[in-house]
Design a protein around this nucleic acid. Structure first.
Length: 591
RNA sequence: GUUCCCAUAGCUCAGUGGAUAGAGCGUUGGUCUCCGAAGCCAAAGGCCCAGGUUCGACUCCUGGUGGGAACACCA
C-alpha cells in the first residue's frame, strides 16, 4: 500500500489527465491552512503558463473532476488557484483502521519496493581515547539514520569505523617507551611470545593519550619519533603490533559499554587497521593505473577538477616517511566494503569539518574505479555541539568533556527531576535507575536530533534537562501516560475496537497526523534528517494531548465510541514509540 | 587570501517555490471534586541588507555585511 500522499497525488494526477493536463501537476501536500483543507494541490498554478489558461479555470476543472471521488468530503478552490481537499469520513476511517490493524508492528508503513544495501559509517571513535562530546552527534544521528534505513526495509549495516591506525598510535607507543623503556614490546630483537595480559588499563590509556598528544605537538623530535613508530607499526613491527592489540582490545570493551549506555549499537566493529592487508595491493594498483603519482617524496592521488572553484589538494596516499593516513585507510575501507558487501549506498555520518577530506576520498574512489558510479557515497555531515561561547563545547576547566561525564550529568539531572515531581516514588531502585537513564538519554538525544543535522547548536544542560516543552521527556511522558490509560481500561475489561468517525476537530487532527507517518518517514530518510522525526513526534504528542484534554475516555458511556478512542490511543502510542525508537529513544512501560 | 557552512521572535531552534512564517524557553493571564497538570488554552513578539529569476521567494541566483569552519605528509 502506498502512502496517503501518494494515493491522493495519484487521484489528483488522474483528474489533471482527465482534464487534458500533464500528470505531473497532480502532486499534493499537507495543507498549511487546516481550517480550509486537509491536503492541497498547487498544480493548477504551475500548469497555467504552459497551457496558457487562468490558474483558477484549471483548478475549477480539476476540482469538479475530483469532487466525483468518494475519497473527498469537499473539493474547493481558493486564492489564485489552490485546489483544497478535505477527506471524507469513510476515507479517513478506512485508512486509520488499516494502520491500527497492522499486526506486524509497522503501523501500516510499507517496506521499500526497492530494498537497498546500505552501510552507515557513524562511529569515528578512537582507540585509546575516551569518547567525548564530539562523538555524540555522530553516534546519535548515525544510529537514527541506520534505524530508519532498517525500518524502511533496506539491508543496512552500521560500522563504527574505529580510528586505530594513525599517528595517535605511534604517539602512545612512544610515550610508553619513554616511560617504560625496558618493556619487552620495545626490544626489537625479542622473538618470543608477548604477554597476553595488557600492561596498561583503559584508565592508563586515557591519561597517556593526552600527554602523548601534547608532547608530540610541542616537541618536534617527539613528533618525528611518533611518526616513525606509526610507520613501523603499519609495517608490522611485532612488539608494536602486540602492544597495539592490547590497546584495541581494552578500548573496544570500553567503547561498547559507552555506546550501549546511549543505546547505540554497531553491526561492524571494524577500524582503519582492518584495511591493512588491502593497502599494498591497492596502492600498487593505483600506481599501475596512473592514478597515483609521486610528489615531494610522497605518493599522492590528484583529485582536482577543472570546475573546482578553489585548489583541491590531492589525497595523500603514502607519506614521505612511508606511513599512511586516514585518506588511504578510508580508500582501502571502500575496497573492502565493495568486496564484502557491494553496497548501493554508503553514508558517512561525520563532522562537517571533514567535507574536503570526503570530497577527496570520493573522487579518488570513483576516478580509480574502486567504487562504481552505481554506488552512492554520501557525506551526511553534521555541525558541532558548541558551548555558550559558540566554540566547540568544553568543560569549565577548558578540557574536552568526556561523553561518560556528560551522560552521568544528564542522568543525575533526570533523577533529581523525577524526585522533584515525585514520579516513580514507589518503584524499586533498579527500575528507578533505569527510568532515570531512559529519561536522561531521551533528553540528550532529542535535544541533539531536534536540530537540523548540518547546523551547529549550543549545549545547555539546564535547557536540555528540562522536562517541559519540546523535549524528550515530554514525549516519554505523553507515551507513558497514554499507556497508563490503556492499562486502566484493560483492568476494567475495556477493549479497543474499530476507529469510528472523529467526534471533534481535535480528534480529526490526531487522525490526520497519524496518517502522515509513512510520508514523514520517507521524507526523513530521503533528506537524511532525523529532525523531521522529532518534529513529527512532538506534533503527534501535541495532537494527542489536545484530544486527551477534549475527551474523557474511561468515563465515556457510548461503548462503541469508547472502544474507538481506545483504538486511537493505542495507535498513537504505537506510532509514538515507533518514531522514538527510530530516534534511538526507548520508552519505559511506566515512570 | 580562497572555498564551504550559517544568519528567522528577547533566548534556543523548525520551516519540501505557494495562502495568514511555526515551536519551545522566558513574560503575562486562564485551566485539575473527573483517565498522570512533565499537560491544555490564550496574549504579546520575527525572515541581516541590496538587487535578480518567478504568476508567487524565508526558500533559488548575484553582490554586500556579520559569524563559524576547512585549506597534501594530524584525524
Amino acid at each position: 500500500m502506498s502512502s496517503l500522499k501518494e494515493q491522493l497525488s495519484q487521484l489528483t494526477a488522474d483528474a489533471f489527465v482527465a482534464c487534458g493536463y500533464d500528470a505531473k501537476y497532480g502532486n499534493v501536500a499537507v495543507s498549511q491552512r487546516r481550517e480550509l483543507a486537509d491536503y492541497q494541490c498547487n498544480g493548477a498554478l504551475q500548469a497555467a503558463k504552459p497551457y496558457k489558461k487562468k490558474p483558477r479555470d484549471i483548478a475549477q476543472e480539476v476540482a469538479a473532476k475530483l469532487s466525483e471521488d468518494a475519497s473527498f468530503a469537499e473539493v474547493s478552490i481558493a486564492g489564485p488557484g489552490f485546489v483544497n481537499l478535505r477527506l471524507s469520513e469513510q476515507f479517513l476511517s478506512s485508512h486509520i483502521n488499516h494502520m491500527a490493524g497492522d499486526e506486524n508492528g509497522r503501523c501500516g508503513v510499507p517496506t521499500s519496493q526497492e530494498p537497498l544495501s546500505i552501510i552507515v559509517d557513524y562511529g569515528g571513535a578512537n582507540i585509546a581515547k575516551p569518547l567525548h562530546v564530539g562523538h555524540l552527534r555522530a553516534a546519535i544521528i548515525g544510529e537514527s539514520l541506520k534505524r530508519l534505513c532498517v525500518f524502511l526495509g533496506h539491508k543496512t549495516l552500521g560500522d563504527v569505523h574505529l580510528g586505530d591506525w594513525g599517528l595517535q598510535m605511534g604517539q602512545i607507543i612512544m610515550e610508553l617507551e619513554r616511560r617504560n623503556p625496558d618493556w619487552v614490546y620495545f626490544d626489537a630483537s625479542f622473538e618470543g611470545e608477548y604477554p597476553s595480559e595488557s600492561p596498561v588499563t583503559i584508565d592508563d590509556l586515557q591519561e597517556i593519550y593526552p600527554a602523548a598528544s601534547a608532547r608530540s605537538k610541542s616537541d618536534p623530535e617527539a613528533k618525528a619519533a611518533a611518526q616513525q613508530a606509526t610507520s613501523e607499526l603499519q609495517s608490522g613491527r611485532r612488539g608494536y603490533m602486540a602492544l597495539w592489540q592490547h590497546f584495541f582490545d581494552i578500548s573496544v570493551g570500553d567503547l561498547k559499554h559507552n555506546y550501549s549506555q546511549l543505546d547505540v549499537h554497531f553491526d561492524l566493529w571494524l577500524g582503519e587497521s582492518h584495511t591493512q592487508p588491502l593497502v599494498a595491493d591497492m596502492v600498487q594498483q593505483l600506481i599501475d593505473d596512473g592514478h597515483a603519482i609521486y610528489s615531494d617524496g610522497a605518493l599522492i592521488v590528484p583529485v582536482a577538477e577543472e570546475s573546482d572553484k578553489k585548489d583541491m589538494p590531492p589525497l595523500m596516499l603514502v607519506k614521505s616517511n612511508e606511513s599512511i593516513g586516514y585518506g588511504t585507510t578510508d580508500l582501502a575501507t571502500l575496497v573492502q566494503r565493495m568486496r564484502d558487501y557491494d553496497p548501493d549506498e554508503i553514508l558517512y555520518v561525520v563532522d562537517g569539518r571533514q567535507q574536503e577530506h570526503f570530497k577527496q576520498v570520493f573522487r579518488a574512489a570513483y576516478n580509480s574505479g574502486i567504487v562504481p558510479e552505481s554506488t552512492k557515497l554520501e557525506h551526511n555531515y553534521f555541525g558541532t555541539m558548541n558551548g555558550k561561547d559558540r566554540k566547540p563545547f568544553k568543560t569549565r576547566e577548558g578540557d574536552v568533556m568526556r561523553l561518560d561525564d556528560l551522560i552521568q550529568m544528564i542522568m543525575s539531572k533526570a533523577e533529581e527531576r523525577l524526585e522533584e515531581i515525585d514520579a516513580a516514588a514507589d518503584y524499586d531502585a533498579t527500575e528507578k535507575q533505569e527510568i532515570a537513564r531512559q529519561v536522561g538519554i531521551a533528553a540528550l538525544k532529542f535535544a541533539d536530533l531536534v536540530n537540523h543535522r548540518t547546523g551547529d547548536y549550543v549545549f545547555d544542560l539546564e535547557r536540555f534537562s528540562s522536562f517541559e516543552g519540546r523535549t524528550g521527556p515530554y514525549l516519554l511522558y505523553a507515551a507513558v501516560r497514554t499507556r497508563s490509560i490503556l492499562r486502566k481500561a484493560a483492568d476494567q475489561g475495556l477493549q479497543a475496537g474499530d476507529i469510528i468517525a472523529a467526534a471533534s476537530d481535535e480528534e480529526r487532527e490526531l487522525q490526520l497526523k497519524l496518517l502522515e507517518l509513512t510520508d514523514l518517514l520517507r521524507f526523513a530518510s530521503e533528506t537524511r534528517a532525523p529532525n523531521h522525526l522529532c518534529e513529527y513526534a512532538y506534533s503527534l504528542a501535541g495532537a494527542f494531548n489536545r484530544f486527551y484534554a477534549q475527551h474523557h475516555i474511561i468515563n465515556e458511556e457510548n461503548k462503541a465510541q469508547q472502544a474507538s478512542w481506545l483504538g486511537l490511543s493505542q495507535l498513537t502510542v504505537d506510532v509514538l514509540v515507533l518514531v522514538l525508537d527510530l530516534l534511538g529513544i526507548s520508552v519505559p512501560e511506566r515512570m
